[in-house]
């Protein structure tokens, strides 16, 4: 796994792509921070994290997905990896943690805003910590979904567009659920992974939400492994 992780980081940070992703994140988060925190003259960052930053995460992870598997397939480097003694689990985990490191680096940019708030007023550290944790957990979930979508397609653009489409559909899940029979309504509504974030937004760290995000992450990582395995049989 270490080899793949290292390769991912070289791929991200020796190319413009890693910096490009960080730049998009910085730009969008600064914009939303200005619009919804500074201009509102508030020190409450829950709304910024819970609503606007999740949107930024969706966009950034979609861009991130372009690099996962489609790029390898395009340059035929998947032949090297899949014929090496390395197992598929290690491959997928290496990719996942590579994505997580870039995402975490981006998330840490938010600390600048906390410093700004603290400079002019009083930042709620508890709320900020809960939100940072929530952002990372949501990110892990989003990245695992992106990996899954990326394993399905050979085109980078397809991976990005597909990933964003899946995020968007998940966001709509609880709206759609209203029209469904009561039996499956709850299940479908729970597919909206952004809804689960509400607890973190209010500064609460609920064990149920942590488990929800971690188990979804594990599920999509597992599905990615299965998809890659299955492709070899076709």
């Amino acid at each position: 796994m270490g080899a793949i992780l290292k390769r991912e980081l070289i791929g991200f940070f020796k190319n413009p792509s890693g910096y490009f992703i960080l730049a998009i994140y910085a730009l969008l988060s600064a914009l939303f921070f200005n619009l919804f925190v500074i201009l509102n003259s508030t020190s409450y960052m829950g709304g910024y994290f819970g609503i606007w930053l999740t949107l930024v995460s969706m966009i950034v992870v979609s861009v991130l997905s372009m690099r996962f598997f489609s790029e390898e397939k395009k340059h035929k480097t998947d032949q090297l990896i899949l014929t090496s003694p390395l197992g598929l689990n290690a491959l997928v985990l290496g990719k996942f943690f590579g994505g997580m490191i870039v995402y975490t680096a981006a998330t840490l940019l938010n600390l600048i805003y906390v410093v700004i708030i603290d400079w002019f007023g009083k930042a709620d550290y508890g709320l900020v910590c809960a939100n940072l944790l929530g952002t990372l957990l949501l990110g892990a979930c989003l990245i695992s979904i992106a990996l899954f979508v990326s394993s399905l397609t050979e085109s980078s653009i397809g991976a990005a567009a597909g990933t964003f489409a899946v995020f968007f559909l998940m966001m709509m899940a609880d709206f759609v659920a209203v029209f469904l029979p009561s039996g499956i309504r709850t299940v479908v509504a729970r597919l909206n992974i952004f809804l689960e974030y509400t607890n973190f937004m209010n500064g609460e760290i609920s064990l149920a939400s942590v488990i929800y995000y971690l188990s979804l992450t594990a599920l999509f990582l597992f599905l990615s492994v299965r998809i890659i395995e299955r492709r070899r049989w076709r």
Partner: peptide, 16 residues
């Protein structure tokens, strides 16, 4: 797989 070294038709290189 440990016993095999493989050079595919297109060398699997990372250009970066």
């Amino acid at each position: 797989k440990q016993q095999i070294g493989y050079l595919p038709e297109v060398p699997p290189l990372y250009m970066d």
